[in-house]
């Protein structure tokens, strides 16, 4: 892995307007992504974890230009892609692709597997006729399917096989960068491992870079090089995998890790967990100051007034927390 920055996101925001009344008056905004900055280095997998409503999926779509950002810049391969034209966006899709969560909803049921996988080749004018056919078969093989699957329809496949089709489609244009949006969440455990291994093999073989979005901290730990933790549209902590899981600093990260049930009854009985009280507040009116403070066991006065800034605590371990800054948490 190099230090070359493939993707650089700065102060990215996405507000969804909320309207009310007969005239559709604009009454508020859902601040889905509220000032997020991060980089993805070439060849790494950045895991983006968060609970529902944290904005992780929105970030993935903003990066791919599937959604228009409210403000902020996105640089890809050194170029600012925040305000590019529709035509340039289409060109960009040859470099960056997405794998969706739901292998049932993301494949057109009326198209054969062959048509689905070869469609990007046609759209981008990459290959024609026999070459296209050969490339399609090659793509299917790459993801562990066979040429005999070409003329079959998505409904004949299981969830794991469909997800392989989705991966093959994403790989068709030979992208550099893939946003994986909860790619294994809809799959059974035994199949999940097959797809995770496939994604890892492909990254190594094709030199891919992933932005891996998931709510599952065990899965993210398994596949990521670095991990960013999101809460209500903000990044709270970014660190190398080992630093984040072995030495989490932000109280939210700590609580999140403690909440995961470990499949080992012996550990369970020994360990007493810190339980977070309360629910995640709404992104329409996030709490003042640090938006985690109403649920935070370490919160003090300053936390409700002043929003903590991201600080590097050493070795690229970034955390936004007043209690870490003043040394309460070490």
């Amino acid at each position: 892995m190099s230090d070359e920055k493939l993707l650089e996101v700065t102060d990215l925001k996405k507000y969804f307007p909320v309207s009310a009344g007969v005239f559709g008056r604009h009454v508020a905004d859902v601040k889905a992504v509220d000032g997020v900055s991060f980089t993805v280095r070439k060849g790494e997998t950045l895991g983006l974890v968060g609970e529902s409503g944290s904005g992780k999926t929105t970030i993935g779509r903003l990066v791919l230009k599937l959604l228009e950002a409210t403000s902020g810049t996105i640089r890809f391969e050194g170029r600012d892609i925040s305000d590019i034209s529709a035509r340039q966006t289409r060109m960009l899709r040859r470099r960056m692709q997405i794998i969706f969560q739901d292998p049932y909803g993301s494949l057109n049921p009326r198209m054969t597997i062959g048509e689905i996988v070869s469609e990007p080749l046609a759209i981008h004018g990459i290959a024609k006729g026999k070459a296209r056919q050969e490339r399609t078969v090659e793509l299917l093989r790459m993801v562990g399917l066979q040429s005999s699957h070409l003329n079959r329809y998505p409904n004949e496949f299981s969830g794991g096989q469909r997800q392989r089709v989705g991966i093959a489609r994403a790989l068709a244009v030979e992208p550099q960068f893939i946003v994986c949006d909860e790619p294994v969440s809809a799959l059974d455990v035994s199949i999940q491992a097959q797809v995770l291994n496939l994604l890892e093999d492909l990254r190594e073989r094709l030199g891919l870079t992933y932005l891996f979005i998931s709510h599952d901290l065990s899965v993210v730990r398994h596949i990521s090089t670095r991990v960013a933790v999101l809460y209500l549209g903000k990044i709270f902590e970014v660190a190398d995998r080992s630093a984040l899981y072995e030495h989490p600093l932000h109280p939210y990260t700590q609580a999140l890790l403690a909440a995961i049930p470990v499949p080992n009854p012996e550990v369970q009985s020994a360990q007493k967990r810190v339980l977070l009280s309360g629910d995640v507040p709404t992104a329409m009116a996030p709490p003042s100051g640090c938006r985690f403070h109403p649920r935070c066991p370490f919160a003090f006065e300053r936390c409700s007034v002043e929003e903590p800034a991201m600080r590097d605590v050493g070795g690229g371990h970034m955390v936004a927390c007043h209690a870490v800054e003043n040394g309460t948490i070490q």
Binding site: S158, G160, I191, A193, E200, S218, R221, H222, V267
Partner: peptide, 25 residues
């Protein structure tokens, strides 16, 4: 056994490769 081996877990080494159950349900 296969189910337990295919699980990414927090109490295992982070870079341990998963052992999936082959085939489909």
């Amino acid at each position: 056994q296969g189910l337990l081996a295919s699980l990414p877990r927090l109490d295992a080494p982070a870079n341990a490769r998963l052992t999936p159950i082959p085939g489909q349900p």
